[in-house]
Each structure stands twice: as C-alpha cells, then as structure tokens.
C-alpha cells in the first residue's frame, strides 16, 4: 500500500503534480508537458514497472477541457496502483505526448484511445486505428456519437457491389431501457438512452 510519506515525497519532488484524491488508489493530476517525464520516473526510479491501463475520458462537448487521458501504473513492491490524469491540449484536435517509448504496452492502448476518442499521441510509432477500420470517419466513444452508429459505407467496395450492404444505425427502440428517474411519469418512463432512432425520431438516413 502507498502511504502518506510516499505521497508527500512525490509531490515535493515533482511540483507539476497535484493530488486529486486517495480513495481507491492514489490519484494524481499531471501537467501535460511533464507527463512523459513522470512516466519515465515511475518506471526507472520507482517500482511502477507495469502500465496496466491507459484510456481517456470525454467530459462532454461543453467542458472547458474536453479530453483527459487517464492511466494506471502498478507497482509490485507497493502492491498498489497510481492513477494519473492528464488534460489534453485543444478540444478540437486533442493531442498529447506518447509514452510508448517508456512503456511498450502503451502502444496499443494509445492506438485504441486514438481510435475511440481521436486523441493523437505525438511521437507514437504507428498512430492509426486499431479496432475500427482505417477509413472509419468517426470516433465512437465521444459523447456526441450515438450508440446506434451513423451511416457509413462499408470498407470493401466489391462486397458492397454484390450485397448492397452498408453501415446502418442499429435500431434502438428494443434496447435496454433506463429511466431518467426525474420529471413527470411520461418523461421518466424507461426508454433506450440513445434516441437517435426511436418511435419519435425517424430512422436517420
């Protein structure tokens, strides 16, 4: 377990860090210019040699800083995780330094984050999509993107020719129902959260 002394020392040594919370694990927020330094510090001088996870959060279109990258390091000595939040520069073309030179495991995580959020990791050796196909135009985990999806052509033109198939929004009206829990009964009635294609709104074309 990480104790208070460790945290204090860490914060003194690196003034670009700030403590966010220490509930399930130590959560720090890091200045984006230093986050590569901090990553190499954790791996080389501390014992956090396992980068277990790297992902991002979309705080919504109206948020002041829209995207932040979150990653978790694990130490086999402390038997504990450290979580680091970093805010991305620019809400339109979010960008941040890649840490895959320090932690090779970050390579795929960063590609996935790019794929899902469109956050570009500079200096990444192979910054391209990993889960969706290369030509896919959207970033699915952004908040404005509907779960049902958006009409797009299929990546293989010859298959499209024989089958006439394309990427179509999925029907949502049978989907899992959630109640908003507030307002009059008629509004809070359980319904699918994604309303891009329901009885009220036409199937998007």
């Amino acid at each position: 377990m990480i104790d208070q002394d460790f945290i204090d020392e860490l914060l003194v040594k690196h003034e670009y860090l700030s403590l966010v919370s220490h509930e399930d694990c130590l959560t720090l927020s890091c200045n984006r210019d230093h986050w590569l330094n901090f990553a190499s510090y954790l791996s080389l001088e501390e014992t956090f040699d396992l980068l277990v996870d790297l992902t991002a959060i979309d705080h919504g279109e109206d948020a002041e800083v829209r995207f932040s990258v979150v990653c978790h390091y694990y130490s086999r000595v402390h038997h504990d995780y450290i979580r680091v939040h970093v805010e991305c520069a620019s809400n339109e073309n979010p960008e941040i330094l890649s840490i895959s030179s320090v932690y090779p495991s970050a390579d795929w995580h960063e590609r996935e984050t790019f794929d899902m959020f469109g956050i570009r990791f500079t200096n990444h050796p192979n910054m391209k999509r990993i889960l969706m196909w290369d030509e896919y135009p959207y970033f699915p985990l952004r908040k404005e993107f509907p779960l049902a999806g958006i009409d797009t052509p299929l990546p293989a033109p010859d298959v499209v020719e024989v089958t006439d198939a394309s990427v179509e929004p999925a029907p949502m009206m049978g989907g899992p129902f959630v109640s908003s829990g507030s307002g009059p009964m008629s509004d809070s009635e359980p319904r699918a959260k994604d309303e891009s294609w329901t009885e009220k709104s036409e199937k998007p074309v």
């Binding site: 990993i130 196909w133 699915p140 993107f145 899992p176 959630v178 959260k193």
Partner: peptide
C-alpha cells in the same frame, strides 16, 4: 490486426444501468 470482434461494449455500458 484486431477489431474484427469489436462490438462497442464500452459505449453500450454508457447507455444502460449497472445491472443491465
């Protein structure tokens, strides 16, 4: 090359209750 079974679980999770 991955992604041939990408079903969008994380996006789905944002659209339903914890038990669902």
């Amino acid at each position: 090359v991955l992604g041939y079974l990408h079903r969008g679980d994380e996006k789905i999770a944002e659209n339903m209750t914890y038990n669902q």
